[in-house]
């Protein structure tokens, strides 16, 4: 049985509803400001090497950072495969301090990149702990370079810290 809802739309009405969808695409749900630049920063990695496996980590869903995009200090977690990295961020004046913990532990290289403000590297201790101080605030990406076995580099999407 046909109801009113089933009748075919004429082209003009299709145009009208497509224009409504266009309004969603362009105005109600636009690409976030700066996403293109953040993605370009995220893939602008110096030492990408065919010999080193590159893996994109994921931020854990429940981010205790109060509105992580706003960037209040706190603990965030990212993971890929069997690797989990917990990162605690504390403000130190204009800069911040990053305390991290890799699980499973390993003496892996850790790099924190901040857009337009360079990067800092360190190596985790045998317990998987690492500390980086005087990190500027901004669009931040974390890399873990895992040695031992097949070399691989884990990279995160950017986060505003």
């Amino acid at each position: 049985m046909r109801t009113m809802d089933d009748y075919e739309m004429d082209p003009a009405e299709q145009e009208f509803w497509l224009a409504q969808v266009a309004r969603i695409v362009d105005e109600l749900d636009p690409v976030p400001a700066g996403l293109v630049e953040r993605a370009q920063f995220a893939i602008d990695l110096e030492d990408i090497d065919a010999e080193v496996e590159l893996e994109a980590a994921r931020w854990a869903d429940q981010r205790p950072l109060a509105g992580v995009r706003g960037g209040a200090p706190g603990t965030i977690t990212f993971f890929v495969g069997d690797l989990t990295v917990m990162v605690n961020v504390t403000r130190t004046g204009e800069k911040q301090r990053i305390d991290g913990w890799l699980v499973p532990a390993g003496e892996h290289g850790v790099e924190v990149r901040v857009a337009d403000q360079g990067s800092k590297t360190t190596t985790a201790d045998e317990g998987g702990r690492f500390v980086l101080t005087e990190i500027p605030r901004g669009t931040t990406q974390i890399l873990v370079r895992m040695n031992g076995g097949k070399p691989r580099t884990v990279v995160t999407p950017t986060v505003e810290l």
Binding site: R38, A42, I48, A56
Partner: peptide, 18 residues
Amino acid sequence: DRSAAEDVAQTVWLALLR
């Protein structure tokens, strides 16, 4: 949601790089 979609977008571009 918008935040998860942004992460996915960046992950997709990292995957392309890889």
